Simulated scan of single mutants.
Amino acid sequence: MRDWRHVRTERLWLDEPVDGDAGALFEIHSDPASWVHLPSGRLTDPAVGESMVGASRHRFDRDGLAYWSVRDEDGGPVVGRGGCLGPDAPPDGRGWWNLYYRFDQGVVGRGYATEMGAAAVDAAHDVAPDRPVMAYLLEHNVGSRRTAEKLGLRLAWRGPDDGNPDPGAVRLVFLDREPDDLLVVAMAAAAMPGSGLVRA
């Protein structure tokens, strides 16, 4: 297994977050334009930026993979956050990798999420290949859905978004493989209680 703390793609520098990234990470996650699909998800406490840095460091130490700070020039400003995060307590003993991507609105549309996501999927397959990669997104977030599809993930589940302030919101789960029975049960129990599975 390789060291995934620092990864270079064609256009991006993906690095384990450092203390100096906290402000930029908070700014990206507190921008209302980044949360048009889920306004209630917007962060409002600047201390959360520091928590993001600490959480990623802990997960890299423990799991070998976590969310990176993303830059599009060497030593440049943070323009996004993304990667794969493993479970705290796998409901089936295995769990899954949660694929995540969020970028500064100034760089949205350049394909950075797909480029970063491809590296994240590769990393997940290297670190724990038996653990599925999941993208968990809202149906009306078309951009996020297209990114998941470009990465080769397939729709595995569709149902109501439990706890969303919008009662009509629909949650989609994309996976990098066909879900087995254990994974179906785990998804339903951990994230989407009372809902059914759609096999793509």
Rank of each mutant, 00 (worst) to 15 (best):
H29K: 08
H29C: 01
H29P: 00
D31K: 10
P32G: 10
A33W: 13
A33D: 14
A33K: 15
S34Q: 14
W35V: 03
W35R: 13
V36F: 07
H37I: 01
H37D: 08
L38R: 15
L38H: 10
L38Q: 11
P39G: 09
P39Y: 11
S40L: 03
G41P: 01
L43I: 08
T44M: 04
T44G: 07
T44A: 07
D45E: 14
D45W: 12
P46L: 06
A47V: 04
A47N: 07
A47P: 02
A47G: 10
A47D: 10
V48K: 00
V48M: 00
E50Q: 15
E50N: 08
E50S: 15
S51A: 10
S51L: 09
M52Y: 12
V53W: 02
G54A: 09
G54R: 12
A55C: 03
S56Y: 01
R57Y: 00
R57L: 00
H58Q: 05
R59C: 01
R59Y: 03
R59P: 01
F60Y: 12
F60R: 15
D63S: 03
G64P: 14
L65R: 10
L65H: 04
L65K: 07
L65D: 07
Y67K: 10
Y67V: 06
W68V: 12
W68H: 06
S69P: 05
V70E: 04
V70A: 11
R71A: 03
R71N: 09
R71G: 02
D72T: 11
D72K: 12
D72L: 10
D72W: 12
E73L: 14
D74P: 08
D74W: 13
D74T: 11
G75R: 12
G75H: 09
G75Y: 08
G76Y: 07
G76P: 00
